[in-house]
Design a protein around this nucleic acid. Structure first.
Lengths: 224, 224
DNA sequence: CTGCAAAGAGGCGGC
DNA sequence: GCCGCCTTTTTGCAG
């Protein structure tokens, strides 16, 4: 998709070439500019040609091409069979959701979890819960700031849920749970009485778990 | 923002450290996994400590920390004063818009450009034009595929424009211009008679410019 | 295969 | 400084 043309002036860069299959590589070019993304790159599946002039990469399917003309190489290192490392991550949205699901009281009291990643016809709902009146509440959670797109997302889920046979006849509410809500998004939430926002920072999710639910049936001998 | 915890098993990686100010660096760690994004990184403003055990990065403001324990270094290269390169890019959204503004006939005939990046209370409109009936048309252009968020965005601009004194009383239309439109987004567009979609690929924007506008006033001697 | 949402996004410009 | 919007995004998952 990203047909773009870029040109870079002479200067020092770091070039990393990785082979994914025989005759097929990917490449990233980092320069002095601070940033996570490399200045240039070529996706996996590129064919590399190395000549006295430099490195040339062609991606047969997309037609993309990267040309690097070399004036001087400071140092070069090749690993024929690099040892692969495994990377595991915690604290991403998945964990934010995990922790939130265990602390529904941060949203409001009396909530019961129905499902996570519940599939509606409009997409997956982060958390589907029942409120104290057994009315479905759709929880859309964001690890970072929620914006207008988040509100539309939530509203779409909310509108589509009653199409599901299991929820036919219900009038669901929706809540955005995030550390911050952009102002225009807040205005949008305010226009809909069945939508709301609850501020939850990651640190809040390190607190105590939701209290264990009370028994559904009255205890023997307890007043009905 | 990105408070995350990650752990990586022993294996071969490429470590690039860049200094932005004295005593302050950023770092990226690439591994064998193909991809543009590095597996780990530390933002600019990190303080590096190097010991016999490895490399340690601390970001004072955010409290983030990256620890790299070194078993073996295959090769290492330091540039004290790297030569900076300049990177120029063509074909990004800015250029897509530039070219589109000069070829409004690709959208429909008889359009006149009013403004670019016109500010509504709901955000900036890519192109604001008048159609042959002097009715305002809001153009939301995407270099890549447009989706439902794009439709909501356009609809919001369309709904907010008449709040602007200059456009009070008008009933604007809206059009999405993009190479492709996601199917759910197309369904959304179809529900609104004042919204539409026009397919324009980047290659189409390499064609001839829009014909010069006809004179606004009738020529002398021409029939009124 | 298509659509959709997340990713430790970062950077830029306007209000 | 907040907020919206773009970026050559890539990747992963489910219907």
């Amino acid at each position: 998709m990203g047909r773009i043309q870029a040109e870079r002036s002479l200067g020092d860069v770091s070039l990393l070439i990785r082979g994914d299959e025989p005759g097929s590589v990917s490449a990233v070019v980092h320069d002095g500019v601070v940033g996570v993304l490399p200045g240039n790159w070529m996706p996996a599946g590129s064919v590399m040609t190395r000549t006295a002039e430099g490195f040339f990469f062609d991606h047969p399917r997309t037609g993309e091409r990267l040309e690097i003309y070399v004036d001087q190489i400071y140092s070069e290192q090749t690993l024929d069979e690099p040892m692969q490392t495994k990377l595991t991550k915690l604290g991403a949205e998945r964990e934010y959701n995990d922790r939130l699901a265990e602390r529904l009281h941060l949203i409001e009291d009396g909530l019961t979890l129905v499902d996570r990643e519940y599939r509606t016809s409009a997409g997956p709902v982060d958390l589907l819960v029942l409120d104290r009146d057994d009315r479905p509440l759709i929880v859309e959670s964001k690890r970072a700031r929620a914006d207008t797109a988040t509100v539309y997302q939530l509203r779409r889920y909310r509108d589509h849920l009653p199409a599901d046979p299991r929820w036919r006849g219900t009038v669901p509410r929706g809540v955005i749970v995030a550390p911050t809500l952009a102002k225009p998004a807040a205005a949008l939430v305010a226009t809909d009485p069945d939508l709301s926002f609850v501020r939850v920072r990651y640190d809040d999710l390190l607190g105590p778990l939701m209290p264990a639910p009370l028994p559904q049936e009255p205890l023997i001998g307890a007043p009905a």
